[in-house]
Amino acid sequence: MILYTTMPLELVYPIAESEFAKRRTVNYEGISLIVEQDEDHAYRVIQVLSTNPAHFLDTRFQPGAKISLS
């Protein structure tokens, strides 16, 4: 099926709310991170939202690293 439309895909096929719920933006030790919740309540780092290049060298917040939030 080909849809000839100028409408964006997400307007044609709305995304389930649960998809958005998985990801959160958190402030962890003063650094904003986008995290995704794993099955075992731990959070996995997706992206570091910082402008300080030093934060990107910190192995604790490397994308894929697991962090626990209280």
Partner: peptide, 26 residues
């Protein structure tokens, strides 16, 4: 002491799509 590591040049990355009023899927 980890937090006092400051760089005098900061870097802002603008990647992917620039999101407007509608949130795009994850």
């Amino acid at each position: 002491p980890q937090l006092s590591q400051d760089s005098k040049i900061h870097c802002l990355t603008i990647v992917g799509q620039i999101e407007g009023h509608m949130q795009l899927p994850p």
